[in-house]
Nucleic acid binder design. Structure first.
Lengths: 234, 234
DNA sequence: CGTGTGATTGACGCCTGTCAACGTCTGTGG
DNA sequence: CCACAGACGTTGACAGGCGTCAATCACACG
């Protein structure tokens, strides 16, 4: 268990409108008191599919992938979680076991909030509850959207979609470099295809000058064209 | 607008634990007063993808398919809604436009509850709110599960999964006849494949004595074997 | 009885997964 | 400092699953 300086909830509220943004000062102080924080290193597993959980996580910094393990151990990445997002709340609310595994992609600082604190807030603060419900509902919308992509788009179109999604979620720096680093296998596990297919299509995109590749760095040269590919027949 | 005898909320609470099961008598009476009901015939559209909605629906009887329209108008069925389920609440909560279309498969009686009534209840009744949150969270879990099926299973395995899901959701009668009637195209739109593929695989399942086919009626003869096919490599 | 919708079957070919071989890079231990 | 192991990336060959197109059949309905 790494010792780190614990970020105060106030900080996350101020800086990136954490889920606690509608809490009163007292409530925030109470959450801040009841939570526990720690640093997670790349590769650390935060929770496993099938685990029962006793609270949820609020992300202060870092990047986490959430995936389900499928046929012959193949991962399917469902979503990415970053600064300002919350993690592990779905199973808490539905009172089910976790339906996915969360693993650190980039060094992450997480605050753990016990479920009692959560339910206490739900009871006492309607704005917090609405915010929580809204996040769940939005995630559901995204999941449904992702579903139809899977069902109807081919691999080429899906890869284009994924690159766009990554660009929107993690943005590009001044050199148009995508601000998340993934292995080819991880990319394949988002797209839902074989690693080799991702490699071949990335080369193709590079050849068509839509992207550029420097090792694992991906430079997005032509977002519009990617957009066009991803919605080809829509 | 068809005139029908309006089911009292009390009835749905008693009979199949509608979402309003935790309401006080007064609250229930109030919902009952504010709602409006009507009969929908097969093929009726309840709401369209992209619509803004001003309330949600509680299903008193019937079957509805919820789908997104994708590439070249091809439907992708996301879920089925039946007696006791609620409909159209996701976009209400997330304050987005509807992300899917709802269409009647079997004659349906729906009660429309205005959004003000919903939010009023969320504010005043914590149990109702928890129930609502729980349903959203569960639906999210199912959507994620569906996603990985799409990404990793082949069409044969997916069709087996879908048949099982339908059997669980709509059950079999004494003759093991599946209690929902779908066209081959609709089946294809759940599985996420071409109509012809569904037809071919159904014939194959029939030949292997897993199912029997009488027009659109599907008789499930061997659920265990279907289960095995659907989880072949898991 | 004609018309239209849905179901079925066959032919064909492309997309994409799999397997295998090889290249590249990094970190470790001798 | 070098050798080596191990993980990851790349490329080619190949086959088969599945989508598409077209023709035909089955059935219901006005």
């Amino acid at each position: 268990m790494s010792k780190i300086e614990m970020p105060h909830c106030e900080f996350c509220v101020q800086n990136f409108k954490s889920i606690f943004k509608s809490l009163s000062d007292d409530e925030l102080e109470s959450v801040n008191f009841e939570k526990s924080c720690r640093l997670y290193k790349k590769g650390d597993v935060i929770f496993h599919e099938g685990n029962r959980t006793s609270g949820f996580y609020c992300v202060s910094s870092g990047i986490i992938k959430v995936f389900k393990t499928g046929i012959e151990g193949k991962e399917q990445i469902i979503r990415f979680v970053k600064k300002g997002d919350i993690l592990g709340y779905r199973s808490l609310i539905s009172k089910e076991a976790a339906c996915s595994t969360a693993k650190v992609i980039e060094e992450t600082i997480l605050c753990f909030i016990p479920s009692e604190t959560l339910f206490q807030l739900v009871k006492s603060n309607i704005d917090f509850t609405m915010e929580l419900m809204q996040r769940t509902a939005k995630e559901l919308g995204e999941s449904n959207k992702f579903l139809i992509d899977m069902a109807q788009k081919n691999v080429r179109e899906r890869l284009a979609s994924v690159l766009i999604m990554l660009a929107e979620t993690f943005s590009l720096d001044d050199n148009k470099i995508l601000q998340i680093t993934l292995t080819r296998e991880e990319l394949a596990n988002i797209v839902g295809t074989a690693t080799e297919s991702v490699i071949r299509l990335l080369s193709e995109f590079k050849h068509d000058e839509l992207i550029d590749l420097k090792g694992r760095k991906i430079i997005i040269k032509n977002l519009d064209e990617l957009e066009e590919i991803s919605t080809m027949y829509l």
